[in-house]
Write a protein that binds this DNA or RNA. Structure first.
Length: 224
DNA sequence: TGCCAGGCCGGGT
DNA sequence: ACCCGGCATGGC
């Protein structure tokens, strides 16, 4: 796997082209945590509207947000889509933060990475990408975030199989890269930028893609 | 108009 | 152990 491509080289290409992305687009660790749930299979533009409503309502910490009745929370986050299931998932996460860490994210993120990751994954509604996004972007802990863009970009180049699972791809990145929070943060952000601009699901625009020289003969691979 | 977006869960084979 | 439908809004 990986076909002798250097991830550092790929990172360098992307960074030269796009520059620093200053991710995650959230002002505080709490907003990042909330955004990680709201963005599940959803465009970020929709999530922004929901976060803005929470901010306007002064719901800026776990206890405050958990005190909001579920049906009211549903209406607040409605622009983010899947609003009923996301309200439930968000409350599952908030309850965990409150019951386990007294509502202090600072305390929560002092927990050893592997241990906290397992705890997050045990919450209904928190899968591997949401957990890793919270750990990396809210907690500054060195865990690599894999998402649909990462998978699509790497599979289309033939660097990994289309049917690779989340943890195998994650482990591939972490085995090739030093455990560096800033690097993981920037790399994932750059992959999302590349994905949005050049690697859409239906119509990739390889002509101007910064990785075009790595394309396989005959264009990008497709799922079998 | 229809397709897509920074997933995840639960029920059915 | 897979496989698949459901969840929902907003932008192009």
């Amino acid at each position: 796997m990986g076909k002798d491509v250097s991830l550092y080289e790929i990172f360098q290409r992307l960074f030269e082209r796009f520059g620093p992305q200053h991710w995650w687009p959230g002002e505080t660790p709490f907003e990042v945590l909330v955004g990680a749930v709201l963005v599940q299979n959803t465009a970020w533009s929709n999530v922004e509207k929901a976060i803005e409503r929470l901010r306007e309502a002064g719901l800026t910490n776990p206890k405050a947000l958990y005190s909001v009745p579920e049906t009211e929370l549903e209406e607040l986050i409605r622009p983010a889509g899947y609003y009923r299931i996301k309200a439930r998932r968000l409350r599952n996460l908030l309850r965990f933060c409150i019951e386990r860490y007294g509502g202090s994210l600072e305390r929560m993120f002092r927990t050893p990475l592997k241990e906290l990751r397992e705890e997050l994954l045990s919450i209904n509604g928190i899968g591997p990408e949401t957990a890793d996004s919270i750990l990396l972007y809210a907690g500054n802990l060195p865990t690599f975030v894999v998402d649909a863009y990462t998978h699509r970009i790497f599979a289309r180049h033939g660097w990994v199989d289309f049917d690779i699972d989340y943890h195998t791809l994650k482990d591939y990145f972490e085995s090739q890269l030093e455990p560096d929070t800033a690097l993981y943060n920037e790399f994932h952000a750059l992959l999302v930028k590349l994905g949005k601009d050049y690697c859409h699901k239906r119509q990739p625009r390889c002509e101007e893609c910064p990785l075009r020289e790595y394309l396989p003969e005959g264009g990008p691979y497709e799922p079998v």
